[in-house]
Design a protein around this nucleic acid. Structure first.
Lengths: 212, 212
DNA sequence: GTCTATAGAGAGATAGAC
DNA sequence: GTCTATCTCTCTATAGAC
């Protein structure tokens, strides 16, 4: 989760190489797809050597989760002061969507998203993180922003939480679509401007006459 | 896919029992989670006996996919004549959302959705079916409907495909949310009316003055 | 910290008796 | 059509030498 503190891991250490290899393999084949054998082979050591750095396979997975969920980029995103930005109205939403777009097309974040989705049906802990991160945190932040926009009469009044979900859901949907295309090496040109188009459409849907 | 013809399988036959057991186990643990050993144990036969009914494990999976994607309920849904219904405007969308809601809370369809999601990152064939079914088919149908609604001036004019995606994405998002809650035995009361609320919100977003 | 060697479990699949 | 027996593979993990 976003509050988790990333473990200190020395660059270029065997431990770091193991993690990098594991992330790569788990993005491709999930938890079970990344066997200790494959990880070891990818790093260039024997399987038994891994156990000098991690107690077991699960500890590797835990470390990856911790580090991925405390990505500084995402932290920055989460911690922006909503109150000042929300009154910008559409500009705020555009910035929000642009950040999701960046995450979507960023290689490291794509791997992260892929691992999460690969394990979503298999691992309760992943589901908890997923719900907290992709639902609660984002929805909470967005609904606050929409509430402020309503107060300033920038948008029509409605349930802020519903509005937040309605705004967020397509972003999630488009991110998934991009991921699926990338996995099968299909072009995503048709999706290159969809995040902006979503904001345009949404703003047209909620903006009051005076703010439009 | 929706056009696939479901294989004839005699009720109460061993073959049918194998499939039922496999669906159950795959919904819980995906393809790898449903081992031939576990399937055999659940049916009450030996593993080797399964091979009298299916060439291998993959053939079991293929049969399940074929049958799930040719669900008569879904077929009915797909094959409704859009032209006549679309002019009903909001009523059409409500009916559409109600159908998704039914699928969401139907036990068999939930298992189907769960298997699909569990294998989405692991199996290209599943991704193809997913894209075709959850994206192309639904978006195509919806964009046709929106196009008709625009022609009748029921809704504001916009890109029908974008509008279809914007309408569909939240439904997908809410369906996923319900599934995740169900997996961990959490209550879905907060989500019981979200499908209707989505249509309300959406209609308010696109309806023209005269149709509202 | 890395190696060899090995244990022990579970997987998919086949041969052949009945 | 089901059974027992077995093969072969892959997996996680540990013991102990260097």
């Amino acid at each position: 989760m976003a509050t988790a503190v990333a473990e200190e891991i020395k660059p270029n250490s065997t431990k770091e190489k193991i993690l990098t290899a594991a992330i790569e393999l788990m993005a491709e084949g999930g938890y079970t797809g990344a066997s200790m054998r494959k990880i070891a082979r990818k790093v260039g050591i024997r399987e038994s050597a891994i156990y000098n750095h991690f107690r077991n396979k699960d500890e590797i997975f835990q470390t990856i989760m911790k580090n991925l969920f405390s990505n500084p980029f995402e932290d920055f995103f989460i911690k922006r002061p909503i109150e000042e930005y929300a009154i910008k109205g559409k500009a705020y939403l555009l910035e929000y969507a642009a950040t999701i777009k960046l995450l979507t097309f960023d290689s490291k974040n794509e791997k992260f998203f892929r691992i999460i989705l690969a394990e979503l049906m298999h691992n309760q802990q992943v589901r908890e993180l997923f719900m907290q991160y992709f639902y609660q945190e984002n929805i909470k932040k967005l609904s606050n922003a929409f509430f402020i926009m309503m107060q300033h009469n920038l948008i029509r009044s409605a349930d802020p939480i519903l509005m937040a979900q309605e705004f967020f859901a397509p972003l999630f949907y488009y991110r998934l679509q991009v991921l699926l295309m990338h996995i099968d090496n299909k072009p995503t040109t048709a999706l290159s401007t969809i995040f902006e188009k979503h904001v345009d459409f949404f703003w047209e849907s909620v903006a009051t006459q005076e703010s439009f």
